Amino acid sequence: MIVVAGEALIDLVVSAEGERAVPGGSPANVAVTLARLDQRVRLLARIGPDEYGRQLTEHLDANQVDLAWAVRADQPTSVAVATLNAAGQASYEFRLEGAADWQWTPQELPDLTGTPATALHTGSLALALAPGAQVLEDLLARERQRDALTVSIDLNLRPSIVSDRAAEQERVRRQVRHAHLVKASDEDLAWLHPDRSAADVMAEWRDAGVLCAVVTRGGDGAWLLAPDGTLHEEPAVRTTVVDTVGAGDSFTGGLLAALADLDALGDRPADRLAAVTEPQWEAVLRQAATVAALTCARRGADPPRRAEVEALLTTPN
């Protein structure tokens, strides 16, 4: 079982066709992607009591995301306004003040000891916004120390909300030390470290104990720095882009699902990830890129199901 922790919010998507409210939030999108790829997934989220919270619950239930550890919160649901340009690329504005997602207390988190969890994934605003961010960071630290599951982080930075670059540099530097796998976009790194190359940052993460570092590069594909120091590059899968909402999240879900299929998630994470061969890393990246491309080909954060991914992966170029 893969445990995903973090926000489940509503994306209010604004386009030339009007407005529509759809379930979203980076960790929730990752959880849905994993479930559609036939992975058992449980979401640690705080879900509000309002109509948006009901919509989120129905969406997650319909996608077989386990909500046994979800908290039924008293606070309202967060809203992200996603405005699409003519090319389908999304820019975001957030309505987060006093919302449910950021109010974690230590008592609300389960003890993962003795559970069937093989990985813990989180990231995005859940690791950036107080007071809940510190609670989740402490969870990551405990799990890294326990060495009984794989810890994964997707930076997914939001400079429009958390704009103090120096503070974010320190936060990320501190949090990646707790992770075995870290994923970021080239846009994340360009904002976080405008004077440094992605390769330099990935090498720094490796020195800090990150076993696998991944940088997505939009239409230019993705890089993966493997535990043995080998850099793998995967081109983007060609597609007709409808919009990019949820593309990065679906890439992360595709990546984790591929590793789960290889039995590369679980206890003794260093040994498991070190056992992944070079051809397997290439296949992992290819699956993640394919999942992201299929998501870009339709409206909103609507990741593909396993059969769709396998059909495209087996189609001759």
Rank of each mutant, 00 (worst) to 15 (best):
L43S: 08
L44G: 05
L44S: 03
L44N: 06
A45I: 06
A45W: 13
A45L: 11
A45G: 06
A45T: 14
R46I: 01
R46D: 01
R46Y: 09
I47A: 03
I47E: 04
P49S: 03
D50A: 00
D50E: 04
D50L: 03
E51L: 05
E51H: 13
Y52M: 07
G53T: 03
G53W: 10
R54C: 02
Q55C: 08
Q55F: 09
L56W: 10
L56M: 09
L56G: 04
T57A: 06
E58P: 00
H59A: 06
H59G: 02
H59P: 03
H59F: 15
L60E: 05
L60F: 05
L60W: 01
D61W: 14
D61C: 13
A62D: 15
N63L: 05
Q64D: 12
Q64M: 05
V65R: 02
V65H: 06
V65W: 10
V65G: 05
D66F: 12
D66P: 08
L67E: 14
L67M: 12
A68P: 01
A68V: 10
A68D: 00
W69K: 00
W69C: 00
W69G: 00
A70C: 05
A70K: 11
A70V: 07
A70Y: 11
A70M: 09
A70T: 08
R72V: 04
R72D: 02
R72Q: 09
A73K: 13
A73C: 12
D74P: 04
D74G: 08
D74E: 06
Q75C: 04
P76V: 00
P76I: 03
